[in-house]
Design a protein around this nucleic acid. Structure first.
Lengths: 208, 208
DNA sequence: CCAAAAGAGTACTGGTCAGTCCAGTACTCT
DNA sequence: AGAGTACTGGACTGACCAGTACTCTTTTGG
C-alpha cells in the first residue's frame, strides 16, 4: 500500500532532516566552522546516518548549496513579469526594483552569498554554478523584460543585457556590499524604498 | 651609531618578513586554511619568533588586514583628481572609471575582499573597519569630486553621495561579482574598456 | 667585551575533527 | 513472521594545529 509514501518514510525523512540541519549550520557557522557532529546533532541523527546519505563533508556542502540554488526560480520569475502599460512605467519599475531589493537583501540570501564567496577557492565549481544559474540567469530574464519594453517603445536600449547589469548595479551595489562586510543585514523598509526609487530614477534617466 | 637604523635591524626585519608572509598565505589559503607553521616557514623564521611579534593568530590576521587597508590611499586619491574642463568631461570621466576598474579588479584586492567577507562573521570589526576606511571613504572622495563638477555646472546632481554610489555600482557590480564567485580574475583590457565606457555613458545620461 | 634580548630548532600538550568500526536496536517490505 | 536494511551510540584512529617549553646560537647595545 502507498509504495511511494512508504518509500518516503524513514530514509527520506532523515535525508531531508540532514539537509535542513546542514543548511542551517553551514549558513550560520561557515564550512570549516561546522563539524559533522554538529550537523548530526541538530538533525537528531547519528553520524553514521549522515555518512550513509552523503559520502563526505564536501559532498554534503555541495548538495546543500546546489539545493538552495534550485530554489531561486521564484526570485527570478519576479523579474519576468512587469506590466507594460506606458502610463505607470516608472511606478511599475520602482515596484519591481523594490521586490528585487527585498529578495536580495534577505538575510538567508546574503548568508548564502557569503558562504559561496568564502569557499570559492576550495569549491570553484560551486561558485561558478551559482553565478551562472542564479546570477546570469536572473540578468538574462531581466534583459528579456527590458527587450519587451524596448520593443514597445517604452525604453531605448540597444544592449539589454548591459542595461540589466546596470539596473542591478544601481540598486544592489550599496546594500549588498554593506551586508557583505558589516554583517548587518539591517535594512529598514525606508532604506530599501529610497534605494529603489533613486536607482530606478537614475536608470530611467539613462535608458528612457 | 645610527640608532634608528640599528633598531630597524633584526627585529624589525623579521617583523616585516612575518607580515609579508602572513599576508601572502592568508590571501592565498584563507584564515583557517593557514597554519602558523606555514607562515613561519614562508617567512624563514621560527614559530617562536612569530609568537614573539604577534600574540596569536587572530591578532596577526587583524594586523595584516588593517595594514593593507592603510595602503588604500593611493587608490582613493585617484578618485579626487579629475580635470574639470568642460570639453573633455566624458573622456576624463571614462578615464577615471577605467582606472577605478583596474584598481578594484586587481587580483590582490579581490582576494582581500574575499578574505574579509569570508571572515566577517568571526571578525566583525575588521569588516566594518574596512568598509568604512576603504569603501565609504572612497565614496565620499568621489562624491566631493562630483560636487565640484556640479558647482561648475558640468553635472546636475543633488545627492552627490548617492551619485557616487551609482557610479560605482554601474561600473563594478558586474566584474566584482564575477570575480567573487568564479574566482576568475581574468578581465581582459578590452572588457574593462567596455565596462568603463558603457558605465560612464549611462552615468552621464542620468546625471548630466 | 659582556649581559640581555631575540632567534632557531625541535619536541611536546591539549584539543578538534573527519571518517571508520562495531554491536545492538528499529523499521520496512513481502 | 522474518530477512534485509537503516539507524543508534559510542568508541576509536589518524591527522592537523594553536600555542608552549626548552636548549642552544646569534645579535644587539652599552
Amino acid at each position: 500500500m502507498k509504495k511511494e509514501l512508504t518509500m518516503d518514510s524513514r530514509s527520506a525523512r532523515k535525508h531531508e532532516a540532514i539537509l535542513e540541519a546542514a543548511t542551517s549550520v553551514f549558513l550560520d557557522k561557515g564550512y570549516s566552522g561546522t563539524s559533522m557532529d554538529d550537523i548530526a546533532k541538530l538533525a537528531a541523527v547519528s553520524k553514521q546516518t549522515v555518512y550513509k546519505h552523503f559520502s563526505d563533508k564536501e559532498k554534503l556542502f555541495a548538495d546543500i548549496v546546489l539545493a538552495t540554488t534550485d530554489r531561486l526560480d521564484t526570485t527570478i520569475d519576479l523579474l519576468a513579469d512587469l506590466p507594460t502599460d506606458a502610463a505607470g512605467l516608472e511606478e511599475n519599475l520602482t515596484k519591481l526594483a523594490r521586490q528585487f531589493l527585498t529578495a536580495l537583501t534577505d538575510p538567508r540570501v546574503i548568508q548564502l552569498r557569503r558562504l559561496i564567496i568564502a569557499n570559492a577557492d576550495v569549491f570553484p565549481e560551486l561558485g561558478t554554478e551559482w553565478y551562472q544559474r542564479g546570477f546570469e540567469r536572473g540578468l538574462a530574464t531581466l534583459a528579456a523584460t527590458f527587450q519587451r519594453l524596448t520593443d514597445q517603445g517604452l525604453l531605448r536600449i540597444d544592449d539589454t543585457l548591459l542595461a540589466a547589469n546596470h539596473f542591478s548595479g544601481l540598486l544592489l551595489w550599496i546594500p549588498v556590499n554593506k551586508a557583505m562586510f558589516t554583517g548587518s543585514t539591517q535594512h529598514t523598509e525606508a532604506d530599501l524604498d529610497r534605494l529603489a526609487t533613486a536607482g530606478t530614477r537614475a536608470f530611467l534617466a539613462a535608458y528612457r
